[in-house]
Amino acid sequence: MTAYFHRLDDLLRGHSAITQSGRVPRAALWLAAQVLVFGVAYGTAMGTFGGVLGERFWQVAYSAAKVPLLLLVTFCIGLPSFFVLNTLYGLRDDFGEAVRALLAAQAGMTLILASLAPFTMLWYASSADYVGATLFNGVMFAVATFSAQWLLRAFYRPLVQRQPRHRWLLRAWLAIYAFVAVQMAWVLRPFIGDPSQPVQFFRDDAWGNAYVVVANLIWETVRRW
């Protein structure tokens, strides 16, 4: 158990031992497992907005499943293109370390999120406003995402030092990842669960498109202006 906490501590401090030591698949699996564990932890907290008893229990379970699902499935969908791009630009030999660096940043992000869960609970305890709860969770995700950028940079530093081109591939990865993640988050709604609506895994109108919705919103605003 102590060893486990030491390893988490290394992860948060951006020690290169996390991405460079050990065998590739095992280290990557360990990191993915951390995404799962801490994602479930924050998801559980996030889903308790409408209560935990009776039918609302399922909302908690759904939210707990959705946070790691969002991160890991997005990761898997983007990985093949990242692999081919790395190969084409001559960085194939570093690919294992690059993947572990990305996974380590994700694990760090969920760990940060989980540490913010008490704030979310306090917010839920003090306000029953659904829109307010949504915004607060948005802020928590934003804080975790931006903080995880530090980790990502720390884990990527040895790679960039070896070959500055890694910086461009990292940017390409972030673009691909964000592009998929926005839509994935849209599909997996609701994460919090409006208490006035029945509990469901997907919304009935889930099969939309986040980007089309945003484009329409912008267009409507411009037209009214």
Partner: peptide, 26 residues
């Protein structure tokens, strides 16, 4: 070969959007 390797690697992204999107223009 280079082109199609890249396209096939983008395949999962395209398939994911195909499944989750109703917008044809997108």
């Amino acid at each position: 070969g280079v082109t199609l390797a890249m396209l096939a690697a983008f395949g999962p992204i395209v398939a994911f959007f195909s499944v989750s999107t109703t917008s044809y223009p997108f």
